[in-house]
Design a protein around this nucleic acid. Structure first.
Lengths: 343, 343
DNA sequence: TTGAAAGCGCTAACAG
DNA sequence: CTGTTAGCGCTTTCAA
């Protein structure tokens, strides 16, 4: 089989009996082209199966019809769902998606972002792992490259971001527990440096204080053993908590496991509410009450915003400040909180 | 802030006091360049922070340092883990990764693949959703574009693929159940048209026959209600199965749920082994015995093979046939199969 | 071993 | 409204 070169603009032009610029104009929906001419050109394009050569466009300084997506960890189901949605919507707008995991490393994230930028992507969607100010990002935000943050704000830049209502979500959870009479509510988890988690902790803490209760947060507990150890400790204390607010879905399942091991009945002896819903939450024993946030909604809003920025070429150079869009979180009441009685 | 153009080959050449071609040669490690010249050029490159302009290279017919990855569903944890690994290894070799979900649609898959190919990617990694012959893929396999399949073979092409031992995995599971005295073993699941699942069914069926037992497969059961209905049916039958082999991890969890609802004790009354391990399998009640296959290994082997093909530019045009690499699966014995006693 | 020239396919700028 | 020209930054070809 012979290697067929793809037809070029020139060939289309010749076949349509016009100049190359006319064809270029037709393709880019530029200015006015006589309808009759346009017809001829379109016929030729169709006949030859012409497709733009992006490399040539790039060389002329145009942007690639590609958006970049950077997440902390692609094998995290939350971000995987985001990626699925982003890619889906991007495609429907004619964009392909370049993906990268930052492995929770701000330096790697920066390197990936710069690599993407050097490839002339049109937009960058980023769930940053940079917990501090993001100075380098500002420099990438050149003309033509739109940037949107999601799940975590882009501190120190004027890029907009789409975030979940982590504070309010935590308050909902705590309030629910309070409504059921709990006063000693512990807060457990890890990754407290990342924005969503720190917001949850803040929501918890403030809400406890507001109710005149003493917050009690145990952070840095990332694995089952750490949870076991912490649990044994509080169970042996004078006034063990009657309820636990778990900051991550991993800790939620570990807590369930550890509580079962220590023969603590949930929710009778200790109630549990976890942040972040997950597939199997309803199949746990007992079914887990969670604060849910939808990765699909988050991703949809983010990519739509990004596409909108690309379309309008709104360069926030003019000192416009970072817009923050918050998405609601929702308390899904199952059994582990004690609101429904199990068996 | 002024928009700084990136330095070009010409500028490097001028600074080094040589011609552009010399610089190009240095960059591409071409033929012989006088060491002293090379030194000067390298210094200039470093000083100016020169980076290649890929668009220009593409225009000259070179391949982009990009690999494409197509999976059926990015929000499936198995494929998400693959994506994470692929991207990780690709990056370490200087490649970025373009990703797409085919949404289990062979036509969409084809469109994505062609789009990627038209972007001059160097390699394509694909877990195909085309259950039949893959004629169009053959045409993409031009010179310069290497293709590797993973998880599912690329039928009708001479592209190699990396697969899991689905048949043997199923046999392991069935044999384990037989070793514990089970004779009436049902096989339940869905997606029986996709290669890995059909292989599991084949493994199950053959192994049952080989042991002189009657296979009993119920397929197309994709949700909890379907599972419930099926279970109620078999429980009411004259000779209900004493063990179930679940083809998908979704069905495994649904079965656990349905069995609990019908007050069937696992593993005492019915034993259960599921295909595909997952994060929470060990935290289920009872902990699930599963046949595990590692997405990380699968992805690693696949991307490494692909990178090797790219490196050697092995064009299988010469009629070399599709190589198939099989990765072992592993039976993880927990409690649901009855080998360990719970409580 | 090195350099000069040609041109990949496209679009911006200018002519007509 | 339409066509011509001039490169974008690189690599291939050919000459020195």
């Amino acid at each position: 089989m012979k290697h067929e070169r793809r037809p070029t603009l020139r060939e289309v032009a010749r076949r349509a009996g016009v100049g190359v610029m006319t064809v270029s104009r037709v393709i880019n929906n530029h200015a006015s082209v006589q309808p009759s001419t346009r017809k001829k050109v379109e016929a030729a394009i169709l006949h030859l199966g012409y497709q733009q050569n992006e490399a040539a466009r790039l060389l002329k300084g145009q942007r690639a019809k590609i958006i970049g997506l950077i997440v902390p960890d692609l094998s995290d189901l939350f971000f995987a769902s985001c990626a699925q949605t982003v890619q889906h919507i991007a495609r429907s707008h004619g964009y392909m998606t370049l993906i990268a995991s930052s492995d929770r490393d701000a330096n790697l994230e920066r390197a990936e972002a710069e690599l993407m930028a050097s490839r002339m992507i049109s937009g960058l969607l980023i769930a940053t792992s940079e917990n501090g100010e993001n100075e380098w990002l500002r420099k990438l935000q050149g003309p033509g490259l739109s940037i949107v943050g999601f799940d975590r704000p882009l501190l120190g830049t004027d890029a907009s971001s789409v975030l979940a209502e982590n504070r309010i979500g935590a308050e909902q959870a705590i309030q629910h527990l309070m409504d059921h009479g709990h006063k000693r509510i512990a807060c457990v988890g890890y990754d407290e440096a990342v924005h969503p988690v720190s917001e949850r902790i803040a929501g918890y803490t403030h809400h406890m204080y507001a109710a005149g209760l003493q917050p009690q947060v145990a952070s840095g507990l990332a694995d089952l053993d750490a949870i076991r150890h912490w649990l044994a400790g509080v169970l042996a204390s004078a006034n063990p908590p009657t309820a636990i607010f778990s900051l991550n879905n991993r800790t939620s399942t570990f807590l369930l496991q550890a509580l079962a091991e220590q023969l603590v009945r949930v929710p009778e002896e200790i109630a549990l509410v976890g942040f972040d819903d997950f597939d199997l939450a309803s199949l746990m024993q007992p079914p887990l009450t969670t604060v849910a946030q939808s990765p699909v909604d988050l991703a949809r809003q983010s990519i739509n915003l990004l596409l909108e920025l690309i379309r309008t070429q709104k360069n926030p150079d003019a000192g416009s400040s970072a817009l923050k869009i918050f998405l609601p979180s929702r308390l899904i009441v199952r059994s582990s909180c004690g609101a429904h009685k199990t068996g």
